[in-house]
Design a protein around this nucleic acid. Structure first.
Lengths: 344, 344
DNA sequence: CTTTAGCACTCTAAAAGTAAGAGTGCTAAA
DNA sequence: TTTAGCACTCTTACTTTTAGAGTGCTAAAG
């Protein structure tokens, strides 16, 4: 085990991975010998493949079949062997046309559309979480009286989010009182990340204000609620039917488990959040995923930003046999696009 | 063909339907004779079943198998033979506990939760369209300046909807001008259904106001847009994986087509809208559905109201072999619940 | 005229058996 | 170190067999 993987073994491993990604069939020594003519006979390849298996990069589904990459094999491929080409011109054309930004002013719509594009460009299922409100910074809050008993609270963040919520105000507040309270709150919270607006901070505010006004209870409940509520964020799915095309999901039971997962938005959110990294595209292969439901899958995630601030995550989920190179290229492209169109 | 279906045939048809709904297996004459002891031998039943087949109520999957109900058979069952019991106490308990209304102030959340409950109580897929904004009546519009260049437009309807949208105002409007415009709009639109606020009406308004102010272009664009946008309404799905449990969907290809349908929100919307009737629960069996994608399914729809005004539709979609009686009971219950909790 | 027992017949679905093909590992020669 | 050759393994697809369920028909009984 001195030089665990020499040049030739790398070539062979690479060939197996690429071939298997394309065909979904176990790759035999003959195939490798022929299609990637490296001047070796199948017997030689066979020996090398046996070594690669012993090293844990390849696996045999059964004694007399070709090899397929193990999780470790994919990892090695992704880290050392894969070459990332740019998208082909045709792909680039197709992508930019479906991303054409006309009439897509609403954030949700942009996200939704991106999910579709991402899934159809990769033939996998895509997940995109909506913008994460709580990572933005508080800018201002307003209360707009609607009628005698109701008001509309509006929260505005530095990233341009507007969140609003209707509240009942059992005790009426005069215009002046309202104004007083609101400006105090604004002053205290300005610039804080929504994350930082904790319950204890709110309680503190409450104490301060209680001395002067005794009618705010409702207003605070609303503030707390409107923040809490934001913890459940929408996750947009694209191409959930794509997994049905993957031969690894020909089993109805697996399909069921997968679709079941797709219905659990909070879980998807967690998965995306915990797998991703603000700066980079992250690739989690099989068991590298923390969540047991997707340990037969690969999840590739990226993040998007509004005004340089990371605000959400997008992901592609599919079998470990996935066209890594392509997915990564598409995702790069899409992240760029999102960053641009959301920051304008 | 004088008396097409006499009492005894009805009994037998009923027995076949009920049995088939429960077991998903073709029902043979022996089964009917035994489990629904009507003092007849299997041979007699056999003759009657042959008649029922000739009349089009039953069908044989193949020459030597039991019978299953045809679409017409189901229809006859639903119209004449089914007895609608109330929900069992256990069911009632389960339902009301999962519908417990605490902390469900947001409309969307109520709807979403209802979809879950509906699907799990029926073991089918449920569809609920979000409240249809456009059927509400305009009550008032406000514009709240956010900063120098942006404003928040708020639309309020008689059903308690609040819709808001941020707009850019390139030309600045003074507070007074803004007020003037807004109150004019309010006066003109008050009481109209959102449906009735057509583009031409908006154009008319625009003409009127142009005489006095020349800076409103933006404000109107926003109004138009915020109305137009509402045409795409969310449809909430529950229990999409339930169809996988139905034996009629053991074919991966059928599954794919179904899931594909579920991804097309606008189509779901159309289906729900066109199948439903404001006053009643509607049952569409197989080919009675207009949309080809669901002609192997039964769709049962109901509508819910806010303040006596029909505002949305909910549906249960599953194979024609469906527990009609139960689904209808559950749906009745759920409609009641929705009407109540949305009108408060 | 209606109902029923009896029986031959049909069709399916599951089980068992068969054959072809792909790929391996090993050995011995180059 | 590489390669040709060959026996062996295992899967998959196809065919055959078998058991069982259910029917339709006929003829007898009520």
């Amino acid at each position: 085990m001195t030089a665990p993987v020499n040049e030739r073994k790398q070539q062979i491993l690479r060939a197996v991975v690429i071939n298997y990604i394309k065909t979904a069939e176990p790759v035999g020594s003959r195939t490798v010998a022929r299609s990637y003519r490296m001047g070796l006979s199948s017997a030689t390849i066979r020996n090398e493949m046996a070594d690669l298996e012993e090293l844990g990069y390849l696996v045999q589904p059964h004694t007399s079949a070709g090899r397929i990459p193990s999780q470790r094999g994919y990892r090695y491929y992704v880290d050392n062997l894969m070459d990332l080409e740019d998208l082909s011109d045709a792909d680039e054309m197709a992508l930019s046309s479906s991303l054409s930004t006309e009439k897509m002013r609403e954030i949700e719509q942009i996200i939704f559309n991106s999910a579709r594009v991402l899934s159809s460009a990769t033939n996998q299922t895509s997940l995109i979480m909506g913008p994460q409100f709580k990572k933005s910074a508080f800018r201002q809050m307003r209360i707009l009286p609607l009628d005698e008993t109701r008001g509309l609270v509006v929260l505005i963040t530095d990233t341009g989010f507007i969140k609003n919520k209707v509240i009942d105000m059992k005790q009426q507040l005069s215009q002046a009182e309202l104004h007083q309270v609101v400006s105090y709150i604004n002053q205290k919270l300005y610039g804080l990340t929504i994350d930082q607006v904790t319950t204890s901070l709110i309680n503190e505010l409450k104490r301060d204000l209680f001395k002067r006004l005794e009618i705010l209870e409702q207003a605070f409940i609303l503030l707390e609620e409107s923040l809490k509520e934001e913890k459940q964020i929408r996750v947009f799915l694209g191409g959930t039917t794509n997994i049905l095309n993957q031969p690894e999901f020909k089993d109805v039971d697996k399909i069921r488990r997968m679709l079941n997962l797709f219905e659990q938005e909070p879980l998807l959110f967690k998965i995306l959040e915990e797998s991703s990294n603000d700066d980079d595209i992250v690739i989690r292969i099989g068991g590298e995923n923390e969540f047991s439901d997707i340990q037969e899958c690969t999840l590739i995630t990226g993040t998007y930003k509004i005004h340089e601030k990371t605000i959400g995550t997008l992901g592609v989920l599919g079998p470990t046999r996935m066209d890594y190179s392509r997915v990564i290229s598409v995702m790069r492209r899409l992240v760029d696009h999102l960053n641009q169109s959301l920051s304008s």
